[in-house]
Design a protein around this nucleic acid. Structure first.
Lengths: 209, 209
DNA sequence: TTGTCAAGAATGAATATTCGTTTTAGGTTC
DNA sequence: GAACCTAAAACGAATATTCATTCTTGACAA
């Protein structure tokens, strides 16, 4: 046998994924041609098609990988005990996120990949399912966390924990969007912003029944 | 002259824009063919190409229109005096947003259009500029608003107003993403979530220098 | 009021291009 | 010598766009 080592195969696969991810982050899934990908990874068509059935599978692999990274950042942060306040918590998530990056690409690349995964769910039902499940899991974990806030006396308002969890997740998603669009997100902005919100006094209801 | 009335021309143009928007919201800009658009609007290729130079211009027109709607929702809400608390304010923005929709499409359609506009900025520099300017304007307006909070004694923490403004905008963006992805956003979730955050107590710094 | 008629509006089959993928015929490396 | 890879060509399908043609409109003469 003249088999090549498994490491070699894995490395080739990664080489393809990384190069394709760079292309996709730059121009989007559909505006980048296979020729672009081939040129970027420096392999021939035959080689790439040995590792991936086609463009669709390549997109799927990259999308799933990117989303998994996001999800694990959220879940890792939510496991901290005792649960830190939202500003610290979301700060940690965003920090993990900003450090995650595509090989050889700038800090914006990963965020750009993520927002494209969002739009790709329009066309790809399987991907839509993956995202749906993933976010469901995140919501459960973070709802538990908000419940802990209430038990510790940190949360005073009588609002559903699930709603607070979804709002926190939305804030993180929004910063991902801003990083993709403008590339100028600093973790302090999020931390300060949440601290500011948390410091605001909730006015009494002006119109009691 | 055998011109048709200006109203007729405007109506045709709108007919094309609405039909194309439905297609784009359904399948994305690039996975939608011109043939799809033609079938949806019920016009021939020649007719559509009389009103728009090509697909790119059609995408540009729809993207700009969608973003303008978002921006005006934000700015309209920010002009309210006296400024309502963030939960009410963002609630109003989201309500306007959820009511905005593509002619004849469901509530998710407009959100889906927006996240696609985000990804389209990767390829379209002009669109990127429009979005950049638009968000800059929103940030300025909302920073002014947060400053008013502080002057009214609503905001206690000593954090940059700009950071709070960006965080609020991010939260709204995140809910837009969630609506696009899952289509299950209710305004109460955002309102409750923000009220919850505002009710949280900010712990003292544990490690003073 | 009616009939006429060019210009505007719309058609849709044809075109040229692009793209993903496969094939072929070697070469290179374990 | 088997697996890996290259280079280049070619394929079919799908695509955006065009253009020769037909239809429709409405101003205006009678």
């Amino acid at each position: 046998m003249a088999r090549v080592s498994q490491e070699h195969l894995d490395a080739r696969r990664r080489q393809i994924l990384d190069g394709a991810a760079r292309c996709f982050a730059r121009n989007g899934f559909h505006a980048t041609s296979m020729q672009d990908v081939l040129a970027e990874v420096g392999l021939s068509a035959g080689a790439v098609y040995r590792y991936f059935r086609g463009k669709e599978e390549l997109i799927g692999a990259i999308a799933t990988e990117a989303f998994t990274a996001i999800r694990s950042a959220f879940e890792e942060a939510s496991r901290a005990t005792p649960p830190p306040t939202p500003d610290v918590l979301l700060g940690a998530v965003l920090r993990l996120f900003l450090e995650e990056r595509v090989e050889g690409a700038d800090r914006q690349a990963f965020a750009r990949l993520i927002i494209q995964v969002w739009t790709e769910t329009l066309r790809n039902e399987e991907l839509a399912g993956t995202l749906s499940e993933g976010y469901d899991g995140m919501r459960v974990a973070w709802t538990r966390l908000v419940t802990a806030y209430r038990e510790n006396g940190l949360l005073h308002a009588d609002v559903p924990a699930d709603h607070v969890a979804r709002t926190l997740i939305a804030t993180a998603q929004g910063f991902i969007a801003q990083q993709a669009l403008f590339g100028d997100v600093a973790v302090e902005v999020l931390e300060d912003g949440l601290r500011g919100l948390m410091s605001m006094s909730v006015p009494q209801d002006d119109e009691p029944i």
